[in-house]
């Protein structure tokens, strides 16, 4: 990001300690992750030690320090989902995407994450992709659900290419 954009984000949220998280959130929203250079820049600009930003970024799981794919696949492994077979859903997702949790596919389309509860236990096992909730997921359904996002990507890619 150009530094002017970062300056804008900082001035929009206020140059003080309590705006650290909103600033990080905006950078995360722009890039899908928190790049090192950007963190270093806002550390200097906001006069906050880099380690403090790094601690916050590594503490909250919604922040990522490595690039994330276009779609974030969250498989719930909470108690209710677990007893309804969330592990089979996760195994199937791993197999289909050919990645382990916290990894990103080579084409930068999908990042797989496990979460411990999404507060929608009645819908378990639940998979959340971007902001869409896919309740009562079975291992057999995983491929079809992922395919929806794959096709959207391919169309998107076609237009950009």
């Amino acid at each position: 990001m150009e530094q002017t954009k970062l300056d804008e984000i900082i001035s929009a949220n206020g140059n003080n300690r309590k705006s650290i998280i909103p600033v990080l959130q905006e950078i995360q929203a722009t890039y899908n992750y928190l790049p090192k250079e950007e963190l270093q820049y806002i550390s200097e600009k906001m006069d906050i030690p880099l380690i403090e930003l790094f601690s916050i970024a590594s503490f909250y799981s919604s922040f990522s320090l490595t690039p994330r794919g276009k779609h974030l696949v969250q498989v719930c492994l909470g108690t209710a989902c677990h007893v309804r077979g969330a592990h089979r859903v996760l195994d199937e997702s791993k197999k289909r995407l050919q990645i382990e949790p916290d990894e990103t596919t080579d084409d930068q389309q999908f990042t797989l994450k496990t979460v411990n509860c999404l507060g929608a236990c009645a819908l378990g096992p639940i998979v959340v992709i971007d902001n869409d909730y896919h309740g009562n997921t079975r291992a057999q359904k995983v491929n079809a659900i992922l395919a929806q996002y794959k096709s959207v990507n391919n169309n998107g890619n076609d237009t950009t290419e």
């Binding site: 963190l39 030690p49 880099l50 380690i51 403090e52 930003l53 790094f54 601690s55 590594s58 503490f59």
Partner: peptide
């Protein structure tokens, strides 16, 4: 200096420098 701090959380919480490289400060 504030060169080191706690990173991560839970059982993965540990002390290190930003990005695990030598800190400028």
């Amino acid at each position: 200096a504030k060169a080191i701090g706690f990173v991560g959380r839970g059982d993965k919480r540990h002390i290190t420098t930003p990005f695990d490289i030598k800190s400028d400060v």
